[in-house]
């Protein structure tokens, strides 16, 4: 679980978020340009971004590659029905596997959805993903009561966070 709200995003932070949520300016001095846009000093922009990074409001500053363009053409959301009383131990072990990029305990939605453990697996092909999913199945052993893998077949939208001005 992510921590409690840090509650430290004030009005200027918010304007900084609005100004950068679609991306960092691609100019030599991006923080100076943001400072100009916000009417504050460049040092303040940099201090605020550094503080938001330190407290986790910003997870990181960086590039988000399109998985498909960098060779991960298969992306499988593996989902598992495991005993609730064992899930924290099992989730930690599945999450530690090198090829699992995201791993969460989520609620079942019975009767339509029996799965409570979600682990995202990326690979160059569906066969590669299925082989990795088989490794997860082996790790879970009899704790896996049922499972499925949902492959993404199209990105329908990918804009990220958009808060209002």
């Amino acid at each position: 679980m992510n921590g409690a709200p840090a509650g430290s995003a004030d009005a200027i932070d918010r304007r900084l978020i609005v100004a950068t949520q679609s991306g960092l300016p691609l100019v030599s001095r991006p923080y100076h340009l943001l400072a100009e846009q916000l009417g504050i000093l460049p040092d303040e922009v940099m201090e605020r971004l550094a503080r938001m990074l330190a407290c986790g409001v910003i997870r990181r500053i960086g590039a988000v590659p399109n998985h498909y363009a960098i060779g991960y053409t298969a992306n499988g959301m593996s989902v598992w029905d495991v005993p609730d009383e064992r899930i924290d131990d099992l989730g930690a072990r599945v999450g530690a596997l090198a090829f699992v990029t995201h791993c969460y305990h989520r609620p079942r939605r019975l009767p339509q959805w029996p799965y409570n453990l979600f682990a995202m697996v990326h690979g160059a092909s569906r066969a590669e993903v299925q082989a990795k999913v088989a490794e997860i199945a082996a790790l879970l052993g009899p704790d896996c009561r049922s499972n499925d893998v949902l492959f993404s077949t199209a990105i329908l939208k990918k804009t990220g966070l958009r808060i209002g001005v």
Binding site: N2, Q21, G23, V57, V64, G160, L161
Partner: peptide, 14 residues
């Protein structure tokens, strides 16, 4: 090839 470049915000922390 890139879908985004910039800060990744965690709204939970706000």
């Amino acid at each position: 090839v890139l879908t985004r470049f910039g800060p990744m915000f965690q709204v939970e922390r706000m």
